[in-house]
């Protein structure tokens, strides 16, 4: 919230400054550096898409070309499982079943479940820790947040055994369980948001006879829309990038997420060379949702990053 103000107010001053100053060498060098940074950022994505559009037969011939000599979408078709095994093998596949459509769906379910439940639970919890008074509030909160310090691998091993013992290996529930209800970060973030907000509105609602739940649903949640979207987006992105945990729990084809499937696909390659064109098509599939998210919510995400950066 604090950051949003400077971002909206500064463009005018920046424009004024820009108009006053004449272009100097320093500024030219600066812009060149920014453009170079942009190119370095974007080129690997370009190369990924280019390689995905290259027929497998041309991998060697086209290796140094900026655009494939015979562009094709067969690689996308075969990683999405849209062509027969024979056709896929003819196009360079190993013959193993590859259905990135399904993996994409698994990833979406995984992210949506975690994103929704965790954000809701942590908003409720953050509200309680910021607003309601109950015994041991400070102590409990400190203990919960201390878990921020514990690296994932430490709880990962026992959690794996727990999920295995519960018979949840290879199920979506086993995959989402550890992060479904809370992460210390999301809880901390939401509490920090609720702390400085004036209580007037809530108190007014309380005088009108509204209970705590009504206040939460009708007054607090609408007020917290901004940070809710922020923490929801960040949770989504993290879940989308998850690899190690889904790798351990969701190995079966039916629960495999996109990241795990990419790792498995790389190992499936039967020949000396991995199936690069197919792998790049699959990589592109894993990037597309992110690009869509950025296209629609780019400004929002960028501002979220600012927001979390300033605590």
């Amino acid at each position: 919230m604090e950051v949003a103000m400077p971002t909206t107010s500064t463009p005018t001053t920046a424009r004024g400054r820009r108009a006053r100053r004449r272009p100097s060498w320093g500024r030219v060098v600066g812009w060149v550096a920014l453009v170079v940074a942009l190119l370095v950022t974007l080129f690997p994505f370009y190369w990924m898409v280019r390689s995905a559009l290259t027929p497998n037969a041309d991998v060697v011939g086209d290796a140094g070309r900026l655009w494939p000599s015979h562009p094709t979408i067969i690689n996308f078709a075969r990683v999405l499982g849209l062509v027969s095994t024979a056709e896929a093998q003819a196009a360079g596949g190993s013959g193993a079943s590859i259905q990135f459509g399904l993996y994409l769906w698994n990833s979406v379910c995984y992210c949506a479940l975690i994103g929704f439940c965790q954000t809701l639970c942590c908003t409720m919890g953050g509200y309680a820790f910021a607003r309601l008074s109950f015994r041991g509030r400070g102590l409990i909160f400190n203990i919960l947040v201390a878990a921020l310090m514990v690296p994932g691998i430490f709880t990962l091993l026992p959690n794996f055994v727990l999920v295995r013992d519960l018979g949840l290996l290879g199920t979506i529930w086993g995959m989402v369980a550890p992060s479904l209800l809370m992460t210390p970060f999301a809880l901390f973030f939401m509490r920090q948001f609720f702390l400085p907000i004036p209580r007037d509105v809530e108190e007014a609602a309380m005088l009108d006879g509204a209970g705590q739940f009504t206040i939460f649903w009708r007054v607090v949640l609408p007020m917290a829309r901004g940070p809710l979207i922020t923490i929801g987006l960040i949770t989504l992105v993290w879940a989308w990038k998850d690899f190690l945990w889904p790798l351990l729990i969701g190995r079966d084809e039916t629960t495999r997420t996109v990241t795990v499937a990419l790792g498995v696909y790389l190992q499936q390659s039967p020949n000396r060379q991995p199936d690069w064109t197919g792998l790049m098509a699959a990589s592109t599939v894993s990037v597309v949702p992110v690009v869509i998210l950025l296209a629609f919510l780019g400004r929002r995400i960028v501002e979220s990053i600012n927001f979390t950066g300033i605590k």
Partner: peptide, 14 residues
């Protein structure tokens, strides 16, 4: 800024 953020949004595996 959005473009510079793109690599961060992509899974490390990719």
């Amino acid at each position: 800024r959005t473009t510079l953020l793109l690599p961060w949004l992509v899974p490390n595996v990719t």
